[in-house]
Simulated assay, not measured.
Amino acid sequence: MQELTLDVAAGSPITDRHCADITLQDCNVEVVPTGYERPLIQDVSVRNLVLSSTRLSGALLRRVEVRNVKADSVSRFLYACAFEEVRLSGRIGTLVLDITDPMGRLAHYLPAIRKAEAGAAYTLDVSEIRGSLDVRGYDASRMIIDPSFQAVVWAEDLRDSDWRGVLGGPSRFSVLIEEMLRENWPNVLLSANIATARRSADLELLKNLRCSRFLRSFEV
Rank of each mutant, 00 (worst) to 15 (best):
residue 86 V to H: 02
residue 140 A to K: 00
residue 157 D to C: 12
residue 207 K to I: 14
residue 17 R to T: 12
residue 9 A to N: 15
residue 204 E to L: 06
residue 42 Q to M: 06
residue 9 A to R: 15
residue 188 V to N: 05
residue 210 R to A: 15
residue 175 V to E: 10
residue 78 L to Y: 07
residue 40 L to K: 06
residue 140 A to M: 01
residue 60 L to A: 09
residue 147 P to C: 13
residue 197 A to K: 14
residue 90 G to E: 07
residue 163 W to L: 09
residue 157 D to T: 12
residue 60 L to D: 05
residue 81 C to V: 10
residue 126 V to K: 03
residue 192 A to D: 04
residue 97 L to E: 08
residue 218 F to I: 07
residue 154 W to A: 10
residue 45 S to I: 02
residue 22 I to W: 09
residue 132 S to P: 01
residue 177 I to M: 00
residue 210 R to C: 13
residue 16 D to F: 09
residue 157 D to Y: 06
residue 30 E to K: 11
residue 151 A to N: 03
residue 35 G to Q: 00
residue 181 L to T: 10
residue 140 A to D: 01
residue 96 V to S: 12
residue 12 S to I: 10
residue 1 M to V: 15
residue 197 A to T: 14
residue 25 Q to P: 05
residue 200 S to K: 12
residue 176 L to Y: 04
residue 155 A to D: 11
residue 150 Q to P: 00
residue 14 I to L: 14
residue 9 A to F: 15
residue 19 C to F: 06
residue 94 T to M: 07
residue 188 V to I: 13
residue 19 C to V: 09
residue 119 G to D: 11
residue 142 R to C: 14
residue 180 M to A: 08
residue 193 N to H: 09
residue 24 L to R: 01
residue 131 G to H: 06
residue 45 S to M: 02
residue 60 L to S: 09
residue 166 V to N: 01
residue 71 A to G: 13
residue 82 A to C: 11
residue 185 W to P: 03
residue 167 L to V: 07
residue 210 R to P: 00
residue 195 A to T: 13
residue 201 A to P: 08
residue 73 S to H: 12
residue 136 R to W: 09
residue 32 V to Y: 05
residue 218 F to W: 11
residue 78 L to K: 01
residue 176 L to N: 11
residue 82 A to D: 10
residue 196 T to P: 01
residue 63 R to N: 14
residue 125 D to A: 07
residue 98 D to A: 12
residue 120 A to T: 07
residue 173 F to Y: 08
residue 115 K to H: 08
residue 98 D to H: 04
residue 49 L to V: 05
residue 214 F to K: 01
residue 51 L to D: 08
residue 47 R to P: 00
residue 160 D to G: 08
residue 23 T to M: 14
residue 146 D to N: 15
residue 26 D to K: 13
residue 136 R to P: 00
residue 126 V to R: 04
residue 220 V to D: 11
residue 22 I to A: 11
residue 139 D to P: 00
residue 198 R to A: 14
residue 124 L to Q: 00
residue 174 S to R: 11
residue 155 A to I: 12
residue 63 R to G: 05
residue 199 R to K: 14
residue 85 E to R: 04
residue 176 L to A: 15
residue 63 R to T: 08
residue 77 F to H: 10
residue 68 N to L: 02
residue 168 G to P: 00
residue 187 N to D: 06
residue 132 S to K: 15
residue 149 F to C: 07
residue 122 Y to G: 10
residue 110 L to M: 14
residue 90 G to L: 05
residue 186 P to G: 11
residue 22 I to E: 09
residue 168 G to I: 03
residue 187 N to C: 12
residue 65 E to I: 09
residue 37 E to H: 08
residue 108 H to Q: 04
residue 120 A to G: 08
residue 13 P to E: 02
residue 131 G to I: 05
residue 190 L to D: 08
residue 185 W to C: 11
residue 164 R to E: 14
residue 126 V to D: 04
residue 91 R to F: 14
residue 180 M to E: 05
residue 15 T to H: 06
residue 39 P to T: 06
residue 51 L to N: 10
residue 212 S to G: 07
residue 96 V to N: 08
residue 38 R to T: 10
residue 113 I to F: 04
residue 61 L to F: 14
residue 214 F to P: 00
residue 52 S to N: 15
residue 107 A to K: 13
residue 77 F to E: 06
